[in-house]
Design a protein around this nucleic acid. Structure first.
Lengths: 340, 340
DNA sequence: TATGTTTTCCGAAACGTTTCGGGCAGTCCG
DNA sequence: CGGACTGCCCGAAACGTTTCGGAAAACATA
């Protein structure tokens, strides 16, 4: 591989000047710069990442650390994340490193080691918990990172998120405005940060709309079809008061809910109204539901670009203000809600 | 981060001796070695990967470069590969870098750049073509790599593979021995190396078994359920002579074949016998077919360990002989074959 | 002519590690 | 007692890059 020294020798220049020319520094003659760049290309020069990292502290590599859980091979969401981020970083000339942990390995030692060996410039954190040790750890270690979501009380780090509270509020309020008073919410796993946030929006909308806040109508769990199905059947099985409408954390849940209601002989929206939040994962289209599903929509695939932007910015040392972004969502009314 | 210098200062030793102690070199006092290792642990020392790479040429990072195709998010096979390899390399204290290319990007410049910047020690190549430019390129660049499969005439590189020719031979011979003379083979895409190899085994078995070699019974295509279904229906639709048995490249194809035969009102194995090769992907069990499927079986998940072994060995400079491995397969007779 | 100001360049140090060549005791052998 | 060997240690160079502090030359200003 060609080095700076080779180029310098070929052009009878100093290594210093070649380096400065390639990095577009000010004090190098325009003509020299062009000559240097031309021969660099000709000699197929690529700067050695290790050497660069050693002195400048940057390697151009960022990482994502994920636990390897049971059925990760079947998780489209996960692939969406990996493909999206990888593409984004590649497009910025950065390398994206995926590190998969063993199933129940503790994440912190892994970060510890990755930081210690200093090969990565920063990390993307997905799926934050409401109390997330990783955030504290990385913040304290002084490493750049960006979070997909927000968690904890002090949000003094780069992130990309959507307005989960407002979105849950909107979905719930849409139902209260149409006369619903008993509204269930199939939410995600209780330890995720966005789940807490959405619950807040849901509860607030219930209060504002004068509806009943019934604890047994708020359910936590995995957000897949199976849970949508079983939760629905449970909601309509016991002695407890039954909902007239269901808010679903995502479209997968809603699919299960539709199946459950069908199995119970209940119609949408005749007997029960259903709304959901739509991440727009491929092969699961809310508009193709029957009846078509009313949703708040914000495509997950719009996250990768701002996430990569924010991490790259954080590494470059840009001010925090420019590194905290909130994505928008739209409300799409379809045919899954009845007015009481 | 603690450096060698810090440890040396703390123990009043030279940097040299600390380095040698940590790397278990010969000429360092046993007691010194222990003291050094203890304080290294205490100071939470991790060797700087960039510095190490710069001088020793090793960074402990290996890469996998994959094209990002249409439905990668739904491809379980792909996730299987990523999860498997990542786990294996993590277990060896190495970092696994996944680089995803844009959809129709040319692979060679990507390798070019990855090699040029010299951050990776080696590559895993999956899904080799019969004529694979990547192999030539990496060989010529002098970089370590391991291939999942074999391709080309001169196989002078590390690989892990299974005996694809013999396996196709066995499946086909199993049918000829039971009196079948017109045997179809739903093979993979023609440019893949294992597809050519399997075709050879299939053809040889036909000849050896005195069966007819009918070109229209050998079909190439994507190895998924959809192609199994459509190919089956085509096989039994035209004027051409029809098979009494079908060999499938994998179980996904076989699933489609079963559906196709059912749709045509043909029974397995009464009207048509079916055999397949089973990679043992999760959630697709050949034994749960009805009737249960006769297969050659070699779990794909047994590939990752030897692949990682071979790449690690290649990087360490082990002789080629130890880096070329062939996995075994077993023949499992079930109920999908009739004797004519 | 003396003094500044630009423009363009370069030497040397630094990053953290590995490794080559050598050095200094102490011990063993003849 | 001289030479060879062994055990333990160290200084210095090297890897390829960036960057700091200057410096020579050319030109403008007073």
């Amino acid at each position: 591989m060609a080095t700076l020294k080779d180029i310098a020798r070929a052009l009878d220049l100093s290594i210093t000047q070649v380096s400065r020319a390639l990095n577009d520094h000010s004090d190098v003659n325009e003509e020299t710069r062009l000559r240097v760049k031309a021969t660099a290309r000709a000699m197929n020069y690529h700067p050695n990442a290790s050497a660069r990292k050693l002195v400048s502290g940057r390697s151009g590599m960022v990482g994502l650390v994920v636990p390897q859980y049971r059925n990760i091979g079947q998780d489209r969401l996960f692939m969406e994340v990996v493909a999206g981020l990888s593409t984004q970083f590649s497009g910025r000339g950065m390398q994206f490193v995926l590190h998969m942990m063993a199933e129940h390995e503790n994440a912190l030692p892994v970060y510890q080691k990755l930081i210690g060996t200093a090969m990565l410039d920063g990390f993307v954190l997905i799926d934050p918990m409401e109390q997330d040790l990783r955030i504290d750890f990385l913040r304290q270690a002084g490493v750049s990172f960006v979070v997909h979501g927000r968690s904890g009380k002090t949000v003094d780090y780069p992130y990309f998120d959507i307005e989960n509270e407002q979105l849950a509020y909107d979905l719930t309020a849409h139902l209260t405005q149409r006369g619903h008073r008993r509204i269930a919410f199939l939410n995600g796993r209780a330890d995720k940060s966005y789940v807490t946030v959405r619950k807040r929006g849901y509860t607030r909308a219930l209060r504002d709309g004068g509806a009943d806040v019934l604890p047994h109508l708020h359910l936590n769990g995995e957000m897949d079809e199976a849970h949508g199905l079983t939760d629905t059947i449970r909601l309509f099985s016991g002695e407890a008061v039954r909902p007239t409408a269901i808010v679903c954390g995502n479209v997968r849940l809603a699919r299960g809910v539709y199946q459950g209601l069908a199995a119970l002989g209940l119609s949408v929206p005749g007997d029960v109204s259903v709304v959901a939040h739509d991440d727009e994962l491929p092969a699961l289209r809310a508009s193709a539901f029957f009846p078509s599903l009313t949703v708040t929509k914000s495509p997950l695939r719009d996250s990768w670009e701002p996430l990569a932007d924010c991490l790259a910015g954080a590494i470059e040392g840009k001010p925090l203000g420019t590194l905290q972004r909130v994505g928008s969502y739209s409300f799409i009314e379809r045919n899954s809600v009845a007015t009481l």
